[in-house]
Simulated assay, not measured.
Amino acid sequence: MRKKFKLWMTVVFAIILSIIVVPMYSAKANTLSIKLNKKSITLKIGETYQLKSNFSESVSCTWKSSNKSIVTVSTTGKLRAKKAGSATVTANINGKTAKCKVTVAKAPAWSRKTWKNKVSDWTMEFSSQYTTVFKSNGTVCQIGWRNKDTGYYRVLSGNKIKAYYTDNYVSWAGSTTPQKVKGYTYTVLYTYNKNTKTVTAKYSSGFYKQMLSNAQDGVLYSN
């Protein structure tokens, strides 16, 4: 009997505590101002950053970007820089807001050119020319003899860009329409040499395992 009484008292106490604490926490959320860990931030194209508010993650927060073409923000406050420019990201909790100004720096001048490899085999039997373009919206495209690979890129530094090719198409022998290669992704690290004004391309090992393209590690030349 005594054990049942203790159990009953424990349940009653828990209910009373929840009735008291939840309204207090809600009142706190309604009265406190919102603060973010950054009021302003500068990112490179392709770079990400996690914004956080001074509230617990359990409190519902709505995030919004004033210009998604420049910077996007996830439902958890993670930023991704898309192209050069400025935008404002707003956090909203219970009608109260806090803002962060996001500036996305311009991509290096050398990346705004069209880059091509030098064909080493004039018969085109073993190698072919391919073209790489870094677009201003943060996407990248590589077009070769029978390939068209697209994805996004990150500016790592003034002379380094890393491309992530996530949508890759191949024109098989005898086909007229390029077909997407499912489950096939790879990366390329591009390094600019300001003395020779060329770019060195270094492909990930996953690229060579597929053997679906004539592209290769090497030097690219601008038009």
Rank of each mutant, 00 (worst) to 15 (best):
E125P: 02
K180D: 01
Q50F: 10
C141T: 03
K118N: 10
K3M: 06
K197D: 09
L36T: 05
E47S: 08
C61E: 08
K162S: 03
I34R: 06
T76H: 14
S111V: 03
Y186K: 02
E47G: 05
Q210L: 05
Y186T: 02
G158K: 08
G85P: 12
K68D: 15
D167V: 00
T185Y: 03
K99E: 15
Y153D: 12
Q210N: 10
Y25D: 05
G158C: 05
T123G: 07
Y49S: 08
Q129A: 06
S18E: 06
W115K: 02
G46R: 01
G46W: 05
G158A: 08
Y184S: 02
R112I: 00
V71N: 14
I16Y: 12
K39E: 15
Q216E: 12
N195P: 00
A173C: 08
G85R: 04
T131C: 10
Y203F: 15
Y165N: 00
V181W: 11
V71E: 13
T139A: 12
R154Q: 13
T176K: 13
T187R: 02
S127I: 00
S86H: 12
T103G: 09
K194V: 02
Y186I: 00
I34K: 07
W172T: 01
W115H: 04
I161G: 01
D217G: 05
L7D: 09
A84Q: 13
S205D: 15
A87W: 13
V22D: 11
A29K: 03
T176A: 13
T88E: 15
G95A: 06
G174D: 08
S18M: 12
S136G: 05
R80N: 14
I16V: 14
S204C: 04
S205R: 06
S69A: 10
C100I: 02
G77L: 04
V219A: 07
A87G: 08
P23K: 04
T31Y: 14
Y169E: 06
T185G: 01
K83A: 10
S120W: 11
T90V: 09
S56N: 15
T48I: 04
T10W: 13
R146T: 03
I161H: 00
S69G: 11
A173N: 08
S205I: 02
N223F: 10
M211S: 14
T72K: 11
S58Q: 11
G138L: 01
G218R: 02
A109N: 12
M24W: 14
W122Q: 09
N67M: 04
I34F: 09
A109P: 07
R2H: 11
V181T: 09
T76V: 07
V21S: 11
F207N: 03
K118W: 10
S58L: 08
Y130T: 00
R2S: 12
G183W: 07
V199A: 01
E125W: 11
W8E: 10
R2W: 11
C141I: 01
S136Q: 13
A107V: 00
I20D: 11
N67Y: 13
V73N: 09
T10P: 04
K68V: 03
K3W: 08
K197F: 08
Y186G: 00
Y165Q: 01
V181E: 11
Y184F: 15
G183D: 05
S33M: 05
F5T: 07
K28C: 07
S204T: 04
Y130A: 03
K3T: 05
L36K: 05
Y49Q: 13
S86D: 14
C61A: 13
Y152I: 02
R146N: 14
L189K: 00
Q210G: 09
K4M: 08
Y130W: 15
W172N: 06
F55G: 10
S175W: 07
